[in-house]
Design a protein around this nucleic acid. Structure first.
Lengths: 273, 273
DNA sequence: ATTCGTTGTTTCATATATAAAACAACGTTT
DNA sequence: AAACGTTGTTTTATATATGAAACAACGAAT
């Protein structure tokens, strides 16, 4: 335009995508709990990538230790290399280190399985877990993902978002249902979240799954923002609700304090983010 | 070179390497417990990749959820996406599921931290852990790697290899030392391994680290080969050695049986691999 | 103030990764 | 046994990812 055209960061995030890398990562993600072994042709069809390209990508992944050949077949499974990645991540997160003893105590006090999860877009990802010793223990494994809007754990995290942020996470109004309690629309979700936000915790006897109750509360860091959530789960019916809510709130309060959260900080201050 | 040239698999493994993918993975691996935040220029220097290329690769990794920008800085840290990968891997391994209760029992019986590890080349990788409740608990986290030849845990796995296989793992005779007990040469290692193999377990009061003792035994699958190893660790000096050896052997025997290992199978039979 | 070395981002010629096509080898079906 | 569809691997023209160079913007050093 005028004299100097100021350089501003490119708008479209896809501009600098390296296809080889992106597709290689897509291949890795094709492996999951259900499908632990996959062959090149199968992946090629599924991802719509030419056979010869998939062949080369998988050779690279094998060479790098992220995939390994299944004994005498020509199929692959995830290699031990991926393990290091995941755990370096966990080890790098301060909150996971601090959470473990707190979850253990919560488990001991309540007798229920307790979890810490963080949000990744519309998913809640389980990051630390302390399993109940009782017969009814949690079967979720670390890394498991659940839809945020349809879980108690997710609700206390979403409740911290501004309207604009929430809109960004859920661009469309219609929300997928998982039980008859799941809000079907964004406005319906907002209403629920407002309650969670003012209450400071969320409770339900059977929100995501029938027969399984949950109490969750948010964890905050020094900025005052919610960065994770802790919950306990129990079998519907046999709950001294109020007592357990206090325990969960105590746990999140302890953890938040360890993360330098100061309750005194006025909420207004964070409206810059 | 007569009529038809038979097509045999390419000899050099690097022939079909996709540079974009390989380098992207190298970038991911640059992040570890010590260095949780890295910037593009730093990585470019370290890996010897042009700045502009690293820039694009990191954008791709961010876009794919494997890296995320550190708050307001231009540095990155590992993204939550890597977590799923690591845990899908664990979930896909039968042995980890089965090992957990066995390690817990071993821990309860001995009062010591117990671990299951598998070998990746010259490394032992910790895969399942049951921490002692005592003040002296294991601080090893899942995914941690230790040199196989310098650990008791590694020795019981290496002891199952044939001479040729061992040679393949350690192409050179000189071995890195970690304590005065570490064998310095391949022949010295072989001698130690021979003892471990006939004994069926390995013990030391301070093999890898001074003051920390360990007892380890091998886990076998239906093929009869050693696929993992279990250990307990303790503080030097206060050990009723024999009693604990029995416990460890019981644990590995239980786990091996669950993996359909039949002790009756003659060792000769597996010499095909 | 000015220079210098960083850094984040962009551009562009060209080295190179890719997709299509073909090959060899296999297992099914006919 | 012939024909067919798979699959693992290789080749090669060409579309494209890459590395070098350059820009803008910053901070530190002079």
């Amino acid at each position: 335009m005028a004299k100097t055209t100021p350089v501003e960061p490119s708008q479209d995030a896809e501009r600098y995508i390296v296809p080889g890398l992106q597709r290689g990562l897509q291949i890795l993600r094709a492996f999951d709990r259900q499908r632990t072994q996959l062959g090149a042709p199968e992946i090629a069809r599924e991802l719509g990538i030419p056979r010869s390209t998939v062949f080369r990508l998988m050779q690279t992944l094998e060479y790098s230790g992220l995939l390994e050949k299944v004994d005498h077949s020509s199929e692959y499974r995830l290699g031990i290399g991926v393990l290091s990645l995941g755990f370096e991540y966990l080890a790098s997160m301060e909150v996971t280190e601090l959470a473990r003893p707190i979850l253990d105590r919560l488990r001991d006090e309540t007798g229920f399985s307790s979890h810490l999860a963080i949000r990744d877009g519309t998913d809640m990802v389980f990051v630390v877990k302390s399993a109940a010793k009782a017969t009814f223990a949690s079967s979720v494994t670390i890394g498991t993902r659940f839809p945020a809007h349809a879980t108690i754990l997710g609700r206390v995290m979403l409740a911290d978002l501004t309207d604009t942020e929430l809109q960004g996470v859920y661009p469309i109004d219609k929300l997928p249902r998982y039980s008859d309690q799941t809000p079907e629309t964004l406005p319906a979700l907002k209403k629920v979240l407002k309650g969670d936000a003012t209450r400071g915790y969320a409770f339900s006897a059977a929100y995501f799954e029938h027969g399984i109750g949950s109490i969750a509360a948010p964890v905050r860091d020094s900025s005052g923002r919610v960065i994770a959530a802790i919950n306990v789960i129990f079998q519907d019916g046999k709950v001294e609700k109020d007592q357990y809510i206090d325990r969960v709130l105590q746990a999140t309060s302890d953890l938040s304090r360890q993360l330098n959260y100061h309750p005194a900080v006025n909420k207004q201050e964070r409206l810059t983010g």
